[in-house]
Nucleic acid binder design. Sequence first.
DNA 1: TAGTTGACTTAGACAATGTCTAATGTAGGA
DNA 2: TCCTACATTAGACATTGTCTAAGTCAACTA
Lengths: 139, 139
Amino acid sequence: MSDLLERLRGRGWRMTAQRRVVAEVLDGDHVHLTADEVHARAVARLPEISRATVYNTLGEMVSLGEVVEVSTDRRAKRYDPNAHRPHHHLVCGHCGAIRDVHPSGNPLADLPDTERFGFTVSDVEVTYRGVCPNCVATA
Amino acid sequence: MSDLLERLRGRGWRMTAQRRVVAEVLDGDHVHLTADEVHARAVARLPEISRATVYNTLGEMVSLGEVVEVSTDRRAKRYDPNAHRPHHHLVCGHCGAIRDVHPSGNPLADLPDTERFGFTVSDVEVTYRGVCPNCVATA
DNA sequence: TAGTTGACTTAGACAATGTCTAATGTAGGA
DNA sequence: TCCTACATTAGACATTGTCTAAGTCAACTA
């Protein structure tokens, strides 16, 4: 994730211990933590980090396009560091597990002009729902 | 929306003034109110209706499959009475306006087996984002 | 029509998530 | 090293949603 830190520094970010820790916590694939989970893990490494800072830092990363907000359930927002490879999400309705997926096709092209109501459509978000292998097995 | 009321009665619902009012408020096309908005409009017709009843009633309508929950922004859930015609949503990122849309194609079929991670995939939710004609004009 | 009963409604406390502010601290340039 | 604008902090506050205990009433029965 030093990639991310480098990019942020390049954008004029002042580098602080707090921001470094938040960036480190978000490292990895299929990572989709809530702000609270990020905070909990950040506290483990830097006990005095505050909730407000985690929220601020996540918000800034989102504005810079380095992290994407995901709302798969209707609870807390989740933060996905995999912002530079466009993808969608597959969610287990039972345990909440989330995987990044890459459907074929282009859903944007599937929206006919007659269904655009004059909107300028720029983006599309697809959420697949189902049950993961674990939950199927234990059910 | 007496359709809805009839269906609910048919399912053994006790018919009360509160439930009638909630059903009436949800009547129409492209209706996507938050629970609070439903409550506000319900209060206009039946001043003593409580927040809890609105939440309960909406929750019950959702369980019965008569109303669909939509989360287009990350604020409150919205309630869509158009549950019997499957559709997706187009959202204005500026003013929050929401339209029901019917894309061609089947996004479910666009998810290859290799991208399913062993999940049993049963549903897909597509949210288009853009700017509505009004907001384009006034921007 | 009146009585009965369990489903329905209510107010308000509580919970979860997120935002804001004023005071304090500090990274990085001069 | 010092300075200053930017960053952090604690905690109050806001929004959205859930729960509970007590009271109310729709619809069935007779």
